[in-house]
């Protein structure tokens, strides 16, 4: 598995798209730093970019990468390797390349600016972690989608739809539910709906870290009460972990039964 990981990582970091992706983050963070001298404001702007972009790029790269490697995967399958080690090796190479793009693109400018010595260090670390977690979760979903659907066009369309669902449609439904049931106590529903969407989870975690709960009214109070407790953090970590384990387990199940 490690050998496959190594080569799939080599392959990925030499890809033009990974360069463009890191370059984009690099330019965006530098431009934001130039426009505003306040690190926390820069981090908020970056949050908005990351929340939308990392899932999209993760799911698109993942799907395209799988389809492009399909024939090579068949070549690997004729070797004395288990299916599981082929898929985890390929996947980890991709995830590592995506995470390194984020570390370079966002990490370098902010570290150069002196975020390590500032009060915003923990926010910065949380932001980077969430960006990596979102990349991991969505590229896993991408692998799963590509494994399930042999047709490239179908797979890509479903990937884009999944991203659209979690990034936009989910929040729309969420808001409608809140509006429709505003007469009832909604804190439990709110929290469970946030926990079920990795993008919302990342967004809320970062917003809460910013101490913006005061601006979010009652919801903010409920959330900060929830997140402030140990049980809240445990539930959130568990939910993020589930977002990794569940697709991984499904990939294993699907790949064991699939004809290549």
């Amino acid at each position: 598995m490690l050998k496959i990981l190594k080569y799939s990582f080599y392959e990925m970091i030499r890809s033009r798209w990974i360069f463009i992706y890191s370059g984009f983050y690099l330019i965006a963070s530098m431009a934001l730093l130039l426009l505003s001298n306040d690190i926390s404001k820069v981090l908020i702007s970056l949050t908005n970019i990351i929340i939308i972009l990392t899932p999209l790029i993760g799911i698109l790269f993942g799907t395209i990468y799988y389809y492009n490697s399909k024939e090579f995967i068949q070549l690997l399958m004729a070797q004395a390797l288990s299916r599981w080690s082929i898929f985890t090796g390929m996947y980890l190479g991709l995830a590592a390349a995506l995470c390194i793009s984020i570390l370079i693109g966002i990490g370098i400018p902010l570290i150069a600016y002196g975020v390590l010595g500032s009060a915003e260090l923990s926010l910065f670390l949380l932001l980077i972690t969430m960006a990596c977690v979102l990349s991991i979760v969505f590229s896993l979903m991408a692998f799963l989608i590509a494994l399930k659907f042999d047709d490239k066009v179908k797979g890509l369309s479903i990937s884009i739809f999944v991203w659209l669902f979690f990034a936009i449609i989910y929040d729309g439904i969420f808001l409608l539910l809140l509006l429709g049931f505003k007469e009832y106590p909604l804190d439990k529903l709110t929290i469970s709906m946030i926990v079920l969407n990795p993008i919302d989870l990342a967004r809320i975690l970062i917003l809460m870290k910013l101490d913006m709960s005061a601006m979010m009214g009652y919801t903010g109070a409920v959330l900060s009460k929830f997140l402030g407790k140990n049980i809240g953090m445990i539930i959130i970590s568990f939910s993020l972990l589930l977002w990794v384990i569940l697709p991984l387990w499904t990939i294993r199940r699907v790949s064991m039964k699939k004809d290549f």
């Binding site: 080569y7 890809s15 068949q74 070549l75 004729a78 004395a80 390797l81």
Partner: peptide, 28 residues
């Protein structure tokens, strides 16, 4: 899968990882 150690298989592959060189693929 360990039986495949004894098999040389030439598949009908037309796409390899684009960014690896021939030498790298051979050492892989």
């Amino acid at each position: 899968y360990s039986y495949r150690k004894q098999i040389s298989y030439l598949s009908q592959i037309s796409r390899f990882p684009d960014n690896l060189t021939v030498n790298e693929l051979i050492s892989f």
